[in-house]
Amino acid sequence: MNIFRFAGDMTHLISILVLLLKIYATKSCSGISLKTQELYALVFLTRYLDLFTDFISVYNTIMKLVFIASSLAVVCCMRMHRVVRRSYDKDLDTFRHYFLILASFVLALLVNEKFTFQEIFWAFSIYLEALAILPQLVLLQRSGNVDNLTGQYVFFLGAYRAFYILNWIYRYFTEQHFSRWIACVSGLVQTVLYADFFYYYFISWKNNAKMQLPA
């Protein structure tokens, strides 16, 4: 464990807490893409298959449980909760995310560390996570205005993987046999996808104005 990775995990946790706060406090999920939430639930379920077989540390196990439980809770809440579900932007959240699932799975079959069940699903979860934010970014683009909590949620979600890139650089230089190029390349793609969001987020923060994404 290094400071970059710990900062990344905490930033990721903050993004989840901000999302839960937004939904709980406003009893609304407007501006939140259910498809992105479903993709994230799939990412965690397929990445942590070794949750009960490989014990790495208490921290590792607890964080995995928190990520799985929170992503499933948000999906259930957005689908079932009678008040929250009414505020879901169903007609804006139309990204065909099944293609993302299919593309990630095909790529995982072709490019993986080892052709085993667990490794293929691990690579699948890495590729899918890089693309999972797309429905959310498309929804924000279409809805134009971004409310503060939603903007902060997406910002922290993007920032966490940027910390992980620093973590991989650090581990590359400090651990002789460290080679995790699947996660590195995918993490880079993931962070680049946020680039324009970060730009408009910074502009709105600098001008202390409400965040506007160009239609």
Binding site: H12, D50, D54, I56, N167, E175, A183
Partner: peptide, 10 residues
Amino acid sequence: PPEGSYHDEL
């Protein structure tokens, strides 16, 4: 597996 093993990251 110990820290630094293959999938020790979240």
